[in-house]
């Protein structure tokens, strides 16, 4: 059936070994953990790395640690099942827990990792196809071609960020820790994502996601809603993560993040700013959702009719905020 192209494989035993291998091989190398995104893409020749560096046996990437000040560190190679099943996360960081639980299927969550989902390849109807299909069309700019079939005059690729965990973690204010052979850095998770379907991550060559850091959850309430065609398996047609810091019914701080509406998770900043200082009521929710929906401007390039995808953004934000209101 669908076979993989040729590649070399290195099962790294330590972070250092992995980083050195990735640093020396250059752009032909790819890190792989669960492989649930990369391997099918390789079968369809969407990606053809020459060296795969396996991360599953790297102990540094499996950690789950509470840090000073009540923040929480999550290693990139924790599986999505581990994230979804973690009781502390369910209580304090509900959005991320719900998002992890909404990814694909149980078997894929058992293999797939947090880091893998955060780095999920962007998706597009013209790209997520087997090689013959893409060849017949003449390929697209994301792989082997020069044109964007979604917007043929566009200088950029519009492939869509479809991961579940990123909007949730961004809403929770996550920072991401990046590591390479030359050192480490920590940035806001939202800054990991670029608004470009091809270069959708700000990772430097040889750099990988080591883990994320969630700030203290004190006072925050969050949730995640995913719209998809079936009750399981499918990527989001639209998703909304919302996190609010509440003080007796009044919103102190808010973050609302859309998934699957563009090449990166999209923050609804105007809506978040509006909610600051507001009491959470049916009216304020409605207004926040109206403002938020302005940030969701999907293109017609993934599953789900465009009109449907556009129209549900506002309502999905309402649902998410109502859920928080209900507690």
């Amino acid at each position: 059936m669908m076979r993989l192209p040729k590649f070399r494989y290195l099962g790294a035993k330590s972070l250092k070994e992995a980083l050195q291998a990735l640093g020396s091989v250059g752009p032909e190398g790819r890190a792989v953990a669960g492989g649930t995104d990369l391997l099918p893409n390789m079968k369809r020749r969407q990606q053809q790395p020459k060296l795969l560096v396996g991360l599953r046996q790297v102990p540094e990437l499996q950690s789950l640690s509470g840090e000073s000040g009540g923040s929480l560190g999550l290693g990139a190679c924790l599986t999505l099942s581990e994230i979804a099943g973690n009781a502390a996360l369910q209580d304090d960081y509900a959005a991320l827990s719900l998002a992890a639980r909404a990814v694909a299927t149980p078997a894929l969550r058992n293999m797939g990792t947090l880091g893998g989902n955060l780095c999920l390849d962007t998706r597009c109807n013209y790209y997520c196809q087997d090689q013959e299909w893409r060849e017949a069309l003449g390929y697209c700019m994301k792989k082997d071609g020069s044109i964007c079939w979604v917007a043929p005059s566009s200088p950029r690729c519009w492939a869509v960020s479809s991961c579940d965990t990123a909007p949730a973690a961004i809403a929770l204010g996550a920072r991401v820790r990046l590591a390479s052979a030359s050192g480490r850095r920590e940035i806001d998770l939202s800054d990991l994502y670029l608004d470009d379907g091809i270069r959708y991550l700000s990772l430097e060559p040889g750099e990988l996601v080591e883990g994320i850091l969630l700030p203290p959850a004190q006072g925050w309430v969050s949730t995640y809603r995913k719209i998809r065609r079936r009750g399981s398996i499918d990527f989001p047609i639209l998703s909304v993560a919302a996190a609010l810091k509440l003080d007796g019914g009044v919103v102190e701080k808010a973050r609302i993040v859309f998934g699957a509406v563009g090449s990166r998770p999209k923050q609804a900043k105007e809506a978040a700013a509006f909610l600051g200082g507001e009491r959470l009521t049916a009216e304020s929710i409605e207004e926040a959702a109206r403002l938020a929906a302005k940030a969701a401007r999907p293109l017609d390039n993934t599953d789900g009719g465009l009109s449907w995808r556009k129209r549900i953004a506002q309502a999905t934000v309402v649902r998410a905020l109502e859920e928080i209101l209900r507690g």
Binding site: M1, L4, Y9, G11, G35, T36, L39, P40, L52, G54, R56, Q57, T79, S81, P106, A107, L108, N110, M111
Partner: peptide
């Protein structure tokens, strides 16, 4: 002990 899709697992991932 965890259910996985064996069509997406490569040999090197079952080491040990």
């Amino acid at each position: 002990g965890e259910a996985v899709n064996s069509c997406l697992v490569i040999a090197s991932q079952i080491q040990g």
